[in-house]
Design a protein around this nucleic acid. Structure first.
Length: 434
DNA sequence: TCTGGGGTCCTAGGACCC
DNA sequence: TCTGGGGTCCTAGGACCC
């Protein structure tokens, strides 16, 4: 048995935890640069605000309907998530944290009063964090996900599912008739693992509901689609194919990307942005004790705007693999210089770290071996990470220009505008481009 | 004017090997 | 007419998730 515990409208609920006056109001949380809606309260959903809808399309609702739009505060959401996950773990012996607002709890076979325990955990989470949650319980992850969906909709969409399944829904305690009824009421596209594309292809063959998916031959799912859909079919039939992953597997890639508030056309601000991305990515890399064997940097124009298109990527191989911010920033800057062309309204750029590998013992030894070598920078990086962890992001950072004088003058200008910061001035590291 | 930022897995096809 | 039969590795692209 699995439980899926999920925070309702999570980011909005986090905001409401600290601003109770927002309860009952239509509220959305906006993405970076206040670009689009990434979380909506039930009241905002009722106004017709869609997931991912651009802010400028819903802005009129602020006046006409009292819609409250908030900029995202991911640090806050991360903190509340940690607390919620700790409480959710109390439901059973094993936990997989699946996303910022969801966790599976597993190994629940034979547990007595499981449904009652789920209710108790749910109310404890609400009392201690102010986050309302729903719980789905079932013998497979896909069914637990489905029950979680039922628990949510039964509460907020009257008539969608029987009311007794609201908030906590246990598949194992439903009658066979109730299980069938739920499968019939659920669209195929609402099943975990079936997205828009596959749902459209399924509907061409008359497979419209979760019941239809559960009753298609698994062999057909595999033959005409893939093993992914085959697993979904089997999981809906109650055969567990997707197991709990307690310790997250080591990351295979790390990305740091951003849309720009205003389009960029010149190289210097692009270099500045890309340096920032490489710095963030390097921090994540070191936090996981990994090194990157390659770095990819990209920049592109907006797909929504007219004008000449630009979409380029450069891949730089790092030999030896590195987790040093200076090396990664140097590679990112070299890469972006190589793809840059003037005359384009660049809307987005990013850095991705690839070919990640655990930092081996030999590498750690090398880090401390030869003073002055490229590889002896890890102690510096460690100190940087500690200072930034203690005093906040970018308290200390790498300057990404080959011109030390300019770096210093840029830094002075920033000092005048901001609270005091400290910076180390370091040169670009030359990188061989693949 | 203004359109998110991360991730994962699977498959197909090409290059290359014996 | 028939045109070997596997393997592996790599990459690109598609689809999905939150």
């Amino acid at each position: 048995m699995f439980a899926l515990i999920d925070g309702n409208n999570f980011y909005v609920s986090c905001e409401r935890a600290f601003r109770p006056s927002l309860r009952g109001l239509p509220v959305v949380v906006l993405s970076n640069n206040d670009g689009c809606a990434i979380a909506r309260s039930d009241e905002a959903k009722a106004l017709g605000v869609k997931m991912g809808q651009p802010h400028f399309e819903i802005r009129h609702l602020e006046q006409s309907a009292g819609l409250v739009c908030l900029s995202a505060n991911f640090e806050l959401y991360g903190d509340i998530s940690d607390r919620m996950m700790t409480l959710a773990a109390g439901l059973g012996p094993l936990q997989e944290i699946y996303s910022i607002d969801e966790s599976y709890v597993g190994d629940l076979e034979g547990m007595r009063d499981l449904t009652q325990r789920a209710w108790a955990i749910r109310s404890r989470i609400y009392r201690w964090t102010s986050i309302p949650t729903c719980v789905g319980l079932a013998p497979t992850k896909t069914l637990a996900k489905l029950c979680n969906h039922v628990a949510k909709d039964a509460e907020r969409k009257p008539g969608s599912y029987p009311k007794e399944f609201a908030q906590v829904c246990n598949w194992a305690e439903m009658s066979a008739a109730a299980q069938q009824d739920v499968l019939h009421r659920t669209l195929a596209s609402e099943v975990w693992g079936i997205g828009r594309r596959i749902a459209a292809q399924l509907s061409e063959q008359g497979i419209l509901t979760a019941w239809d998916v559960a009753h298609m031959p698994a062999t057909k799912a595999r033959r005409e689609w893939s093993v992914v859909l085959e697993r979904t079919v089997l999981e809906l039939q109650g055969l567990s194919c997707i197991s709990l992953e307690q310790a997250p597997p080591p990351k295979k890639q790390i990305a740091s990307t951003r849309s720009f508030g205003q389009a960029i056309t010149d190289l210097p601000p692009l270099i500045e942005a890309v340096s920032e991305f490489a710095t963030r990515a390097a921090e994540k890399l070191r936090a996981g004790g990994q090194r990157a064997g390659a770095l990819q940097v990209f920049a592109h124009t907006s797909p929504f705007r007219p004008g000449p298109r630009f979409y380029r990527t450069a891949t730089i191989h790092l030999e030896p693999p590195s987790c040093d911010t200076k090396v990664l920033v140097g590679a990112a800057v070299a890469g972006v210089r190589s793809i840059y062309a003037p005359g384009y309204q660049l809307a987005k750029a990013g850095v991705m770290l690839l070919d990640l590998a655990a930092k081996g013992v030999e590498q750690q030894a090398l880090d401390f071996a030869a003073p002055g070598s490229v590889r002896d920078q890890s102690p510096l990086m460690e100190v940087m990470d500690r200072i930034n962890g203690r005093w906040g992001k970018a308290t200390v950072h790498v300057a990404s220009t080959g011109n030390a004088e300019k770096a210093v003058s840029d830094w002075r200008m920033k000092q005048e505008r901001r609270t005091p910061r400290y910076t180390t001035v370091l040169d670009e590291v030359p990188i061989a481009r693949a």
